[in-house]
């Protein structure tokens, strides 16, 4: 499969490696987006705009110059998306290229998130899945400690189709509903989650003390697109699992909370918010506490939101 995201690069081996990475994401946004990558150690331009920090990455956007600039903090790497541009200009230092796996999963994925916004695809920190019995799409939104990956893995062990455990992109569907595209990546479980699910194997990911599993490894399949009918905002608890229904406004507040990039790039904030509003209207949402009973009764989650 060839990604619909264009790639130009002045270094042939790097170009091949980045093309493989893009292909592995299985992201197929509308044509016209691209990455223009060059290798250099040149310092990035000065920028006095208020930084927006995520782990390992710094973003500056908005007025006066507009557009967005992304810095990697691990090794020198910089990207710029000019206002309205659909091609991101990326500069990677040799040191960044030596850490290419980390660079793609952290820095370049952030660049991709901003690039995809130019095609109307807006990121939310969420897992996606499809219930094979009811045919309903699920979105599970929350931070890194909320239990998204454990939930995605649990559902995969029950034969569900799982799209992603974190990298979800909202887009307007043909039918007026919001559809969520998944970035193809293995589910990354912490040691504790792997133990609770009684899983063995997985590929160790040393840098974050996690083990990764493809949905297919767990008995599920991959779902590239999901139209959510159910939204969960989970947290991990000690007691029994519970679910509390949320009204539309509270659902929207939670969706904004897990859509960190919505505040950046003023011209793209309203379409992003509009998608979140549509999603809040189209799906029933629940605040869920994930208890240990789920691991003995994995279908309880479905029962709680029936």
């Amino acid at each position: 499969m060839t990604s619909t995201i264009g790639l130009t690069c002045d270094d042939a081996p790097l170009c091949r490696a980045l093309a493989r990475w893009l292909d592995h994401t299985r992201l197929e946004p509308p044509d016209g987006l691209g990455l223009d990558v060059r290798v250099a150690d040149a310092p990035p331009p000065p920028d006095v705009r208020t930084p927006f920090r995520q782990p390992g990455v710094v973003v500056r956007s908005g007025p006066p110059q507009g557009g967005v600039r992304v810095w990697w903090e691990v090794a020198p790497a910089f990207a710029e998306l000019a206002p309205g541009a659909t091609v991101a200009r990326v500069t990677l230092s040799p040191a960044a290229i030596r850490e290419l796996d980390l660079c793609t999963s952290s820095f370049l994925m952030t660049v991709l998130i901003f690039l995809l916004r130019r095609a109307g695809w807006h990121h939310v920190h969420a897992a996606t899945a499809v219930d094979p019995e009811a045919g309903r799409g699920w979105l599970v939104a929350g931070d890194a400690a909320a239990g998204k990956s454990t939930t995605a893995a649990l559902l995969a062990t029950r034969g569900w189709a799982v799209g992603t455990d974190d990298l979800a992109f909202l887009a307007a569907g043909m039918d007026g509903r919001v559809s969520v595209a998944a970035c193809r990546a293995p589910i990354a479980l912490r040691v504790g989650g792997r133990r609770l699910l009684r899983l063995i194997g997985g590929i160790p990911r040393a840098e974050r003390d996690k083990f990764t599993f493809w949905p297919e490894d767990l008995g599920g399949v991959w779902a590239p697109h999901v139209a959510p009918d159910i939204i969960l905002f989970p947290s991990i608890g000690d007691g029994r699992s519970t679910a509390t229904a949320l009204g539309r406004r509270d659902t929207l507040v939670e969706l904004v909370r897990w859509s960190a990039w919505v505040v950046l790039e003023p011209e793209l904030a309203q379409p992003h918010l509009d998608l979140l509003g549509t999603l809040a209207r189209q799906a029933r949402a629940f605040r869920v506490t994930l208890g240990r009973d789920l691991f003995d009764h994995p279908d309880r989650l479905r029962e709680l939101v029936a």
């Binding site: 539309r248 929207l252 904004v256 505040v263 904030a269 309203q270 918010l273 509003g277």
Partner: peptide, 24 residues
């Protein structure tokens, strides 16, 4: 001018792009 509104069923969420805060 940096305010954005997202209405949902008569209520809504307000996002301030400058302060990066949101309110229901």
């Amino acid at each position: 001018p940096e305010l954005r509104l997202a209405p949902v069923e008569g209520e809504g969420v307000v996002l301030h792009l400058g302060t990066r805060r949101y309110f229901s």
